[in-house]
Design a binder for these strands. Sequence first.
DNA 1: GACAATCTGAAATTATCGCTTCAACAGTCT
DNA 2: AGACTGTTGAAGCGATAATTTCAGATTGTC
Lengths: 288, 288
Amino acid sequence: MRQPVQTTIAERLRLKAAELTAAERKLMATLFANYPMAGLASITEFAREACVSTPSVLRLAKKLGFSGFPAFQERLRAELSAQLQNPIAKHDRWSADAPDTHILNRFATAAMENLSGSLKLMDHRSFDAVVALLTDRRRRIHIGGGRITGALAVYLTTHLQMARPEVTLVPAMPAMWPQVLLDIGKKDVVVVFDIRRYDARMLEFAASARERGAKLVLITDQWISPIARLAVHSLPLRIEAPSSWDSNIVLLFMAEALVAAIINAAWPETQARIRELEGLAESVRRPR
Amino acid sequence: MRQPVQTTIAERLRLKAAELTAAERKLMATLFANYPMAGLASITEFAREACVSTPSVLRLAKKLGFSGFPAFQERLRAELSAQLQNPIAKHDRWSADAPDTHILNRFATAAMENLSGSLKLMDHRSFDAVVALLTDRRRRIHIGGGRITGALAVYLTTHLQMARPEVTLVPAMPAMWPQVLLDIGKKDVVVVFDIRRYDARMLEFAASARERGAKLVLITDQWISPIARLAVHSLPLRIEAPSSWDSNIVLLFMAEALVAAIINAAWPETQARIRELEGLAESVRRPR
DNA sequence: GACAATCTGAAATTATCGCTTCAACAGTCT
DNA sequence: AGACTGTTGAAGCGATAATTTCAGATTGTC
């Protein structure tokens, strides 16, 4: 591991301020006026900005202990990067006393990284647009997934059915798709899960649905399924895991976040529906 | 002063995301992973970081409307500069520019807390014991879940079936349980998902399985299902969410971690099995 | 005012970057 | 099968950036 404490360029400059020449102080002032951006342009621009020559910049960099201007600049970038990088969950010891190499901890780290990476990758307006689409009660919704993602499709369907009517699961068997497609039209929204290795048959299904006028929403991985070309909205997520398979945790996260947002978006109706559902559950259970 | 409203590079990228090529998407992901610092190095470094060639970087820059890489980079610097000058440093933790109150960010925070809370709560030796139990090939495994957790049971079953033989899903319908119980004996392990509100019928099923000599493994929430009294191992997890329902993300995490650990524990056999599976998948797919 | 010490930038040199070309490749459509 | 369209990176060629050199400018000292 690298030395944890390393002085920033700003600190070093202030420390050496006394022994700087006139041209170097000009550079310092310019840099501080717009720290550290001023130093991230080319050496030529930085020199011109401070009204000095390029060799003066170079001498300053060397005075600060760098091998050359690129080294100086790289340090500036590293500083800024560290500053911008959110100290996301400084994984303060996951599992109580298991070693860091325990699979639980390795998986937890991967899950965290996938989650934060996905959120950076994603456009929250796409998310909002998808929520609006799925909240619209004039639309019917069909949800489908592949071999692995099928369980997620089931999960999303189950939850969405609690929130609103007209939600159906696209059966896992391609043999049944023609009948499903028969009832898909302009008013329908088809939500598809597709992660690598992308399912060729799912692509065909998506194309057919699209042809019949349905709107496609795609939930996929960071490498993006080819279905994206047909979809009105794509939500790419990171799914890397320290195992032979990818991790679908973030897909589930997305499913749950969608459901929560949809429920929020139409609370009064949803609340009424949930009440009714509870009542029905009771009356089914009671008489056994 | 320049036009105040100008699309950022991040926005432009998201807008064009659908029409990007694979190499370009790699670049996009790399840039977003460390935005915008990743793009401020030289074109060569940026390309290497994303594992693509320099011409691909150039093509992306041109696709976004820039005359070349330096122009692209200058815009990045300008954006960053503007952002840094802004006193309200937008260090938005999660989604690039969504507010903290956006459901995505609230959900992400909850998921992170659930995950780290679960790991602190859990005894990793229980986890290891469960892994050992499920790795033992002399045992048959049955996996069951309730109305909500059923999808997770399906997921775990699907994955575990790839790792080892003799894994079956307990059907969701209680009517079918007698037949399932008939074949459960001392050699069997029954894995049950049960979160609040705990399923009374699932408890009965678990009790019957226990009576017949099966070992019970319970995956439950922090308030712990009554089935825990019957189980040899219980894995309690945190499932709170900022919504009307609980979040099952951590349950999925546990399922994936279990599968990964089981695969690790018996790698040679598992590898052979996976190879065989791949072969079969091929031969089923080919003749369509 | 001469001298030494230091500083500075123009110009030359070198290294690296950014860009173009082109052949290989993959996927698609006849 | 084979032509076609679109994507990709290796190779090479300017262009620009980074560095070095050195002569002139500046400053301080005697």
